[in-house]
Design a protein around this nucleic acid. Structure first.
Length: 332
DNA sequence: TTCCGACAGTGGGGTCGCAAT
DNA sequence: ATTGCGACCCCACTATCGGAA
């Protein structure tokens, strides 16, 4: 695609502008818990990696992080693959990911996410891929006003997708069925995008996130003090039983409104005790310990390799389950 | 009027790099 | 050698406010 205009009709051509600048703030998706199916939307895999906008303006490609940091040294093979493309003036948007088996693994990606030395990054043994899902500019032309479906078509036709560069596949319409399959395959979730919309930086409802969430009960074994303007407490320290051992599962510090913070703190004060109830050492400098008897429902995305909850949030207290029956539902 | 997007502020796990212990 | 801290990545959520619907 040396000339994107050749593939467009007159209406689409009228949306083109000249590209200025080298970077664009990425478009973000809004989390929703009500997945739907709609032929006006397309659905793609939500990848658990690092968001990267990559561009070139006749010279070496530059990879930008969301905080507008240049991250070429962390992913030199991605920069190389982009440099080898026929085109040398473009801006694309996508996600850099690493795999653990057939699952994308943020934990593995983290081993090279901050590396400032390209050779060190290559030597980590962590292979990365750049899943490209949008094209914002090509040949000096700003494509952002084109409908998403058209941009996808241009993207697919204008780049050579060989590893580590991959075209992020999408489906039209049946979002609910796709989500069920996604969760079954252990994916993080889906991104739903309105197929007829332009690229628009920042968060909006043109892009939505459907996440495969886990949740289970945990026993509260302590809490931390609030900081700043926070009231009640900072975070709850959570645990579960493994036989007679009360194992530590990490902290949860979000999901409460002010009233819940105050009410819960009052209840915790009544069952405070001196010693930690946890079998594991909890590296918390100023923790308060409580009798492990209150049970909380916690949503989270996954267990980390250290046995902690990732992205935890409090969704309420439960009084229908005895604390001693709370066990880890997903085995380590 | 209600709703939505943007912003600030609080909290999480994990990694790296650096300084203090 | 270990520990603590901040800066980054990934994030969830509450509270507030102003403007759009």
């Amino acid at each position: 695609m040396s000339d994107p205009q050749a593939l467009l009709d007159d209406d689409e051509r009228s949306l083109l502008r000249r590209w200025t600048g080298d970077w664009a703030e990425p478009q973000l998706a809004t989390l929703t818990d009500a997945p739907f199916s709609d032929p006006a939307w397309i659905y793609e895999r939500k990848l658990d990696g690092m968001r990267v906008v990559a561009g070139a303006d006749g010279g070496d490609p530059v990879l930008w992080s969301r905080s507008h940091r240049r991250v070429n040294t962390a992913y030199p093979e991605v920069a190389d693959a982009l440099a080898e493309q026929a085109a040398d003036r473009f801006v694309v948007d996508g996600e850099v990911v690493a795999f653990d088996g057939d699952q994308t693994s943020f934990a593995r990606l983290q081993r090279r996410i901050h590396l400032g030395d390209a050779r060190a990054a290559r030597n980590t043994g962590v292979r990365v891929f750049y899943y490209v899902f949008d094209v914002l500019a090509f040949g000096g032309v700003d494509l952002r006003r084109l409908p998403l479906r058209t941009r996808k078509r241009l993207l697919k036709e204008s780049f050579d997708f060989t590893d580590p560069l991959r075209f992020s596949a999408h489906r039209s319409g049946n979002g609910e069925e796709f989500l069920a399959q996604a969760c079954e395959r252990g994916w993080e979730g889906l991104i739903a995008k309105r197929a007829d919309r332009p690229y628009c930086s920042g968060r909006s409802r043109d892009w939505l996130k459907f996440k495969c969430v886990s949740d289970q009960e945990f026993v509260i074994g302590g809490y931390t003090e609030p900081r700043g303007s926070r009231v009640g407490f900072g975070a709850l320290l959570l645990g579960y039983y493994e036989g007679d051992r009360f194992r530590y599962a990490g902290k949860v510090g979000t999901g409460y409104d002010e009233r819940t913070l105050r009410d819960l703190r009052a209840r915790l004060d009544r069952i405070e005790r001196d010693a930690s109830p946890f079998h594991d050492r909890v590296a918390e400098r100023e923790a308060h310990w409580v009798e492990p008897e209150l049970v909380a429902q916690i949503g989270f995305t996954e267990w980390t390799s250290d046995g902690r909850l990732r992205h935890p949030r409090f969704s309420g207290l439960r009084n229908d389950k005895p604390a001693h029956e709370v066990v880890r539902e997903t085995p380590a």
